[in-house]
């Protein structure tokens, strides 16, 4: 039981790191544009396929194609924002929801059409070993996913807090009218923030590709988890999202020790409902961007 729990805690934390990267992307988009990006999961799926195909067709190592998937999704994000999101920014919220939901459906069906629903796996042969440490099994691709995710999350934080452009992004999220008054090009910041959010989730997709079964709907579960994390972290709070991501990863994984595996997914929804009922402002209070 002891090692089982230890194993659960470890894999929970490792998953949490990836959730953090997915969630900060979602948080950034929500904080700056005020929209909930339901296409986030589908974009993550794209990130996974980018690395899968680059690996299968050209033998590109996924840790190299990480750059391609992050940059590719950044570009796609900028394009989506310019062409589809900007026109609905002033529209009622339900229009925005329908739009991002529509983008998700289109991307998923496109993937279905192009690549079939067959589940695929990407195995990195040189990482295909699993050392045991103190009765706990370590999975190298998961450790790398965690490490890189956390590193990217911290890097993004530093970018937002240390650079002029990063501060301009935060300024737009805090006070749009003030940002306009100082001459910040809001349209450009919107596109940039959306692109960065997509790049994060694309990178996350690549990072989990070596140990996840890839299919067109794989993003769904991640994005539900990310929504829980973002709400739990207090909608738009960066550190809130980071902590909440680790917590959710832990809770999900530890709970799975005590309940049947088939019910594992339920844990996320239970946490979600509990948060909404008990602390709708999130664990860490509102907006400490």
């Amino acid at each position: 039981m002891g090692t089982l729990l230890l194993q659960a805690i470890l894999s929970g934390l490792l998953n949490g790191g990836v959730y953090a990267l997915v969630s900060v992307g979602l948080t950034l988009i929500f904080g700056v544009l005020g929209i909930i990006n339901f296409a986030h999961g589908a974009l993550m799926m794209l990130g996974m396929y980018v690395s899968y195909w680059l690996f299968v067709l050209y033998g590109v190592d996924p840790y190299v194609s990480l750059i391609a998937s992050a940059l590719g999704l950044f570009g796609l994000g900028v394009l989506l924002e310019r062409l589809l999101i900007t026109p609905v920014l002033e529209a009622p919220e339900h229009n925005q929801l329908l739009l991002t939901l529509g983008v998700a459906l289109v991307l998923e069906n496109l993937a279905l059409f192009l690549w079939s629903p067959d589940p695929r796996t990407l195995t990195v042969s040189y990482l295909d070993f699993a050392p045991m440490v103190g009765g706990v099994m370590l999975s190298p691709p998961r450790l790398i996913a965690f490490g890189v995710s956390v590193a990217l999350t911290v890097l993004l934080y530093a970018f937002l807090h240390r650079t002029d452009v990063g501060k301009a992004i935060r300024a737009v999220s805090q006070e749009r009218e003030g940002a306009l008054a100082v001459g910040i090009n809001i349209q450009r910041i919107y596109a940039l923030a959306f692109g960065i959010g997509c790049a994060c989730v694309g990178a996350a997709g690549t990072l989990v590709a070596p140990f996840y079964t890839i299919d067109p709907y794989v993003g769904g579960i991640f994005v539900i988890t990310a929504f829980v994390v973002v709400v739990l972290g207090g909608m738009g709070s960066y550190f809130g999202a980071l902590l909440a991501a680790l917590l959710v990863g832990l809770a999900e994984s530890v709970a799975a020790v005590f309940i049947p595996a088939a019910m594992k997914q339920i844990v996320i929804y239970v946490i979600f409902v509990l948060v909404l009922l008990l602390r709708p402002q999130g664990l860490f209070g509102p907006g400490r961007g």
Binding site: R170, E175, E177, G178, G287
Partner: peptide, 12 residues
């Protein structure tokens, strides 16, 4: 312009 209601960035 100095906007009505200041519109400073509160968390900067």
């Amino acid at each position: 312009r100095v906007p009505e209601g200041r519109k400073i960035f509160p968390r900067l």
